[in-house]
Every structure is written in C-alpha cells, then in structure tokens.
Design a protein around this nucleic acid. Structure first.
Length: 299
DNA sequence: GACCAGGATATAG
DNA sequence: CTATATCATGGT
C-alpha cells in the first residue's frame, strides 16, 4: 500500500537526496539510484517507518509514500503531512527564484540548485538538539557525536535487514548523565546544553509543538532564554528546523566564507557585512542562505 | 604542532 | 556595549 503526494514543481528529489547524503546522518537510509529514502519517524510517540520513493521528473514530481501496516487513517494522514513538511513540498520556489534572481551572484546558484528544497527534520526537538551538537566543531565530528549519542541510547528498528537508528527522545536524553556524554567526547558544556535542553522539554518549560503558531520574533524571544542556544542556533532552528523562509544566519562561518568566494572578496565578510548584502533578499533569505551553504560543500 | 571548525558563555574592561 | 579566554576533538 502506498499513497502519492504531488509536490509543487520544480522539485528535484535527486538533489534533495544528495544534500541529505552530504550530512551523513546515520538514521537516514538513502538510495540515490532508486531515488528512495527510509528513516524512522515518530507518529503519536510511536516509531513508524517512513519509506519514500520518487517518480516523474523535476517539473512533474510524484512522491510515493509507503503505508506501514497497522496504522490508522489519522496516523497515515499525519505521516503524509510530515512528508510534505520534511521536503517542503508546498513552497512556491518559482516565486522565490523570481525574487532572488535579481542578484547576479545568486542567479548561477539558482540554476545549479534548481528544484532543491529545504529538508527539514521530522521533529523540532531533533533539529535543535542536533544544532547544539553542531555548534562550533567541524561537521564530520559533529555527525560522529550524533551517531555516538544514538548508539548510547540504543534505540533502533530493523527494516529489511537494515538497522535504522532512532534519534533519542527528550525523555531518553534527559535521563543521561553529563559524564555519559563526556565519555563519547562531548565537552562539558555541550553535554550540559543538550541534556538540560531535553529536561526543559520533558518538564514542559518549553513546548515545541506550540512554536508552529508563533512568529519568528516570538520564537527568538523564547529560545534566547535557553542556556546553550544563541543567535546562530535560533536562526538555524527557524530555517532548518521549521522552514521559515526569511532567515539569514549571517554570523555563520561557513556562510561567510562562501560569500567571500562567490563575491570575490579579499577577506571574509563580517556578520554585519553579510546582513547588508542580504537585506534585499526578503522575503526569501532562507533559500539564498541555503543555496549558498550548499555551494560551499559542492554538496 | 598549530590552527580552524555551520558557537555560546562567563567574565572583565 | 565590546573584547577575550575557554571548551575539546578531528581534519588539514
């Protein structure tokens, strides 16, 4: 059993998968040849296999979502909604490109990444926890820390011979001790940030489900008061965790370096320089940030 | 071995 | 309000 979801065109699933592969997350199983993706998502606090394949082409895209056994209608609908959310199927990219293509620096990127959409984590908690882990250290090491964390909490589901790790729930992380994370090479602060954040969620001091109704500014207000979450993490939460469209993490070191190269600057621009460059990318600053970021790694 | 990584905080001036 | 030390490990 499966259901077809029709994303807005243009929609390039190959580029989307390539982007996901470059982030080497162990809890996502990607097959770039079949254009398929598998991972475990949580629906009604129940681990559920998400298995998506792609058919059609960039301008006539079809996402085929497999329906797991023993799921109710309501759970199925939540799963489909999650897929739309994860792959930003409803975003009007043409309008976005129209707005950004005024910049001669961005136009080549739009051609290069045409049809590439934001890829969001299925869970906002997972997105924020990972962002805290990704602060400051190089991305391969950060990905390794995430993998070690998943090994530590040891939740996984076997699917057709493949073990798919599950990113731990807030409850699961909240139970850990700082020393457990230190043993897998978290520094003391990172261990505190991640565990304390999870405890905030468990105790209900922060309600992430409520965030979807809030404006960017209201979310900034709430997250600013959380230890371990600063400007960069908030901006990335809005962008990569929630898919908000007008975010430019101007202080990000990777973004600043790409801009230096793309603009041919002598030295790396400051955060304020980047903000000035991007001030007329509204209301689609997020896709400018995203495509610049992607061009940094050449995926 | 130095220096930097898709930062944040505490502290001092 | 700006400047600086600190974190800790892996890649270059």
């Amino acid at each position: 059993m499966f259901k077809i979801i029709i994303p807005k065109a243009p929609f390039d699933f190959k580029k989307i998968l390539k982007r996901m592969s470059s982030r080497n997350n162990n809890n996502v199983l990607i097959n770039e040849e079949n254009l398929s993706l598998q991972r475990i998502v949580t629906i009604d606090s129940q681990p559920t296999l998400l298995y998506v394949t792609f058919q059609g082409d960039i301008d006539h895209p079809l996402l085929k979502v497999h329906i797991p056994n023993n799921t109710s209608r309501i759970q199925q609908e939540k799963l489909f909604q999650l897929v739309r959310h994860m792959f930003s199927t409803e975003c009007d990219l043409l309008k976005c490109y129209d707005s950004l293509s005024g910049s001669p620096y961005l136009k080549p990127l739009i051609n290069q990444f045409y049809g590439l959409r934001l890829v969001l984590e299925p869970s906002l908690f997972e997105a924020i926890a990972k962002l805290i882990i990704y602060q400051q250290i190089n991305t391969t090491f950060a990905a390794e820390l995430v993998n070690r964390l998943m090994t530590l909490t040891a939740e996984e589901v076997e699917v057709e011979g493949n073990c798919l790790p599950i990113f731990p729930s807030p409850e699961s992380i909240a139970k850990l001790s700082y020393n457990q994370l230190r043993r897998i090479s978290f520094n003391q602060r990172k261990a505190e940030y991640v565990i304390d954040f999870a405890q905030n969620i468990v105790e209900g001091k922060i309600n992430l489900d409520h965030f979807w109704k809030l404006t960017d500014e209201e979310i900034i207000q709430i997250l600013s008061n959380v230890r371990g979450i600063g400007k960069w993490t908030i901006e990335c939460t809005l962008l990569f965790g929630m898919g908000r469209l007008n975010i430019l993490p101007a202080g990000d070191i990777a973004l600043r370096k790409v801009i230096k190269n793309v603009w041919g600057l002598k030295q790396t621009p400051s955060e304020k320089d980047v903000e000035k460059l991007g001030h007329n990318w509204s209301p689609y600053k997020s896709y400018a940030s995203y495509y610049l970021w992607c061009s940094a790694k050449l995926f």
